[in-house]
Amino acid sequence: MKNFGKGLIVTALVLSLATVALAAGGPGSGMMRGQGMGPCGGNCCGGKGMMGQNQAAPENISLEQATTTLNEYVANNLKGYQVEKIEAIERPRATMYAATVTDAGGNTFSLHLNPWGMVRGPFLQNN
């Protein structure tokens, strides 16, 4: 009878550990098993791996191009707002830009123009 009790405890322990291990996932989990980390096999972010290594090289966008792009974005998508200031941010591979955008009521936020020419945001500013 003692052996039966010990066997039952060991079986329950093994089953519970197996359940936790299967529920947690891990390398190669998901529908594309064995191709990388996570449910999409490492191809979630626009290329191989999680960091998108297959992205095209960034362009060097000039301040004039950034000004035009950001002003067009604000005019088309954010009625009543205007670009107050554009600041260049030097990155190791290219330049990106941060624009301060305000409206008549004094509401302020930032938009970012990345080196690939995509406008990101709005981002609230810390005052």
Rank of each mutant, 00 (worst) to 15 (best):
G34F: 08
G80L: 08
N114Y: 03
C45I: 00
Q82T: 14
M50P: 10
G49R: 00
I86V: 15
R93H: 07
Y81E: 03
E64A: 12
E87K: 11
A56N: 09
P58H: 06
G41V: 07
P58I: 13
G52D: 01
E72N: 15
L70G: 09
V101G: 06
Q82M: 10
G36P: 00
L113K: 02
S62W: 01
N77L: 04
I89P: 02
Q53R: 11
A98K: 14
G46R: 06
E59C: 03
R93L: 15
M37D: 02
G52T: 02
T102V: 15
Y73T: 15
D103N: 15
C45T: 08
N43I: 04
N71G: 04
P58Y: 05
Q53P: 04
R91I: 04
G46Q: 06
E84T: 08
G38T: 03
G80P: 06
V83D: 02
E72Y: 06
G106M: 03
H112R: 12
Y97D: 07
G105S: 15
A88N: 10
Y81Q: 04
L111C: 08
N77C: 05
N77Q: 13
A57Q: 09
Q55C: 05
E84N: 10
G34E: 10
E59A: 15
G80S: 09
A56M: 08
L78N: 07
W116S: 11
G80I: 09
C40A: 12
A66M: 02
N114L: 05
R91Y: 07
A56W: 00
Q55A: 14
Q35G: 00
N43F: 11
G46Y: 04
N76W: 03
G49T: 01
N114E: 05
G47C: 00
F109G: 10
A99K: 08
G52E: 03
D103L: 07
A88M: 14
D103S: 10
M51D: 11
A57P: 02
C44Q: 13
H112W: 12
I61Q: 01
N114D: 15
F109V: 05
T95V: 14
P58F: 05
E64W: 01
N114F: 04
G41P: 09
P115T: 11
A88S: 14
N71V: 11
L70R: 11
I86T: 12
C45V: 04
N43L: 14
Q65G: 01
Q82G: 08
P39N: 10
K79T: 15
Y97Q: 07
M51H: 08
M50I: 12
